[in-house]
Structure formats: structure tokens, C-alpha cells
């Protein structure tokens, strides 16, 4: 396997997704869950940018290195939309956490149910 920026970014994307899934599975603190979601979305943004880079790499004229600039495609606009949506998800998640803390006195997601067992 050739070690280039595509491979390195793919490893980073997979690693971010794995770390975030692990955090989502083991954490019970609501704010920690929002942190894990943020990490997961970072991987998604990187994946979109990488897809745009694979589709349309433009090597910089100013540098001789294989650094690519201006990988112009729809992927960047989609990544922008993801950043906006992710921010709103974080804002709403944190607002939920604050309200839940006020009403239930805890951030533990297992203590949120009001149904009888």
C-alpha cells in the first residue's frame, strides 16, 4: 500500500469514526455524548474533503511538494453544510443537557426515563 496523503487521511477518518463510536457506546454523560458526536462529524467532514481531493487534485504552482490546493468540487460545499448542521446539533444537544440538568439534576442518560420499570 502506498503511503500518501490519501491513505493517511483515510486512516485518520477511520480512527476518528472508531473513537467516536466507542465514546458513544461507553459514555453515559450527555455532554460527553455531544463530544463524541462532534468527533464523528470531524471524520465525516474530512471524508468529504478527501473525496473532493481525489476527484480533482490541483497541485500548487508555488510549491514543488505534493501538497494540493484548490480541490474544487461539490464536496467542499457539502462539507460546509455539514459544519453548519453539526454546529446546530452541538448547540441543541448542549441546550438539552442544560435543561435536563435543571429538571432531573443529572446528566446521566440512564436516569432520564420517567417510565416505571
Amino acid at each position: 500500500m502506498q503511503l500518501n496523503i490519501t491513505t493517511i487521511t483515510l486512516v485518520a477518518i477511520l480512527g476518528l469514526a472508531a473513537i467516536a463510536f466507542y465514546g458513544l457506546l461507553i459514555s453515559r454523560n450527555m455532554i460527553k455524548l455531544v463530544v463524541a458526536l462532534q468527533i464523528l462529524v470531524k471524520g465525516a467532514i474530512l471524508a468529504f474533503i478527501l473525496a473532493g481531493n481525489i476527484q480533482a487534485p490541483v497541485t500548487s504552482a508555488s510549491t514543488s511538494q505534493a501538497v494540493t490546493y484548490g480541490a474544487i468540487s461539490d464536496a467542499q460545499t457539502l462539507a460546509l453544510t455539514i459544519i453548519v448542521a453539526d454546529t446546530i446539533v452541538a448547540v441543541l444537544g448542549l441546550a438539552f443537557a442544560v435543561q435536563i440538568r435543571r429538571r432531573f439534576g443529572t446528566l446521566d442518560i440512564k436516569a432520564l426515563t420517567t417510565l416505571k420499570r
Binding site: 462532534q38 467532514i45 474533503i49 494540493t68 462539507a79 454546529t87
Partner: peptide
């Protein structure tokens, strides 16, 4: 992540990610 996005050739998205994220 913003730095990596910049190296992947998307400086505008990198700036937005840095300021927002």
C-alpha cells in the same frame, strides 16, 4: 482537523472549521 483540511486543498473550509469548530 482544520490543518488537515487545509493540506487537502480546501483553505476556505479549513478557516470555517477552525473558527466554528
Amino acid at each position: 482537523t482544520a490543518l488537515m483540511i487545509y493540506l487537502l486543498g480546501a483553505p476556505q473550509i479549513a478557516v470555517i472549521e477552525l473558527s466554528v469548530g
